[in-house]
Computed example of a mutant assay.
Amino acid sequence: MLKRFIAFFQNPPAHEKPLPESDARHALGALMVRAAKADHTYLFEELQQIDKVLAERNGLNPVEAAKMRVECERLEAAMPPTEELAIILRNAVPAEEREAMVAALVRVVFADGIEHDEEDELLRQIELVLGVSAAVAKRLHDEAASKCG
């Protein structure tokens, strides 16, 4: 599957096709890894949160979620720029799922309990491209921040 996913990003005509479900799940996982690394650190709390989100969203046990995260970490390095990936995801998933994706990303970037400008900027970029309204994005941000502090 890793080879198919990398080939997906290397084949421009494929961007016009919707992502298969498994590829969309891995793309979101890789995007969570990228968001966690936006502040140039990748902390244990962020790893735990990524595993938790992957387990919840994909019906995985903790070991399966950790294995999926490792695949997503490898994929993150091969991914196109964040904006391009967000456009692919916007075209591949229904609107109601995009809000859930942003909620997952917010959970990851606030997992360490510290707001970083780099992470906030990345989240704003993704929210804009995915078409999540400013009001919804603010609500998701506030919910995550209140749980952290």
Results as ranks from 00 to 15, higher is better:
24 A>N: 08
24 A>G: 02
75 L>W: 02
82 T>D: 01
38 A>G: 00
35 A>N: 05
17 K>S: 15
30 A>S: 00
53 V>M: 05
25 R>S: 10
73 E>K: 02
18 P>G: 03
87 I>C: 09
25 R>H: 13
16 E>Y: 09
101 M>K: 08
61 N>K: 14
99 E>W: 06
100 A>D: 06
90 R>S: 03
82 T>I: 09
101 M>R: 00
36 A>W: 04
61 N>P: 02
44 F>E: 12
31 L>S: 02
59 G>R: 14
96 E>W: 09
79 M>F: 06
83 E>D: 14
86 A>L: 00
44 F>D: 12
71 E>L: 12
34 R>D: 01
99 E>T: 10
50 I>Q: 03
87 I>V: 13
37 K>E: 09
97 E>I: 04
40 H>Y: 13
94 P>Y: 13
70 V>A: 15
61 N>A: 12
29 G>S: 07
27 A>R: 02
77 A>W: 04
15 H>L: 13
24 A>Q: 04
75 L>D: 00
24 A>S: 13
107 R>H: 01
56 E>A: 15
35 A>S: 04
98 R>F: 02
17 K>T: 13
83 E>H: 08
63 V>I: 08
81 P>Q: 05
107 R>T: 01
97 E>S: 12
69 R>Q: 10
40 H>Q: 12
99 E>G: 08
40 H>N: 15
30 A>Q: 04
68 M>A: 11
14 A>T: 00
91 N>D: 14
68 M>C: 08
52 K>Q: 14
38 A>N: 03
69 R>K: 07
27 A>C: 06
23 D>I: 11
102 V>P: 04
74 R>C: 09
49 Q>N: 08
101 M>I: 09
51 D>C: 03
15 H>S: 07
48 Q>W: 08
20 P>D: 14
66 A>F: 08
68 M>Y: 11
61 N>E: 12
32 M>G: 00
23 D>A: 15
20 P>G: 12
39 D>A: 05
92 A>W: 01
54 L>T: 06
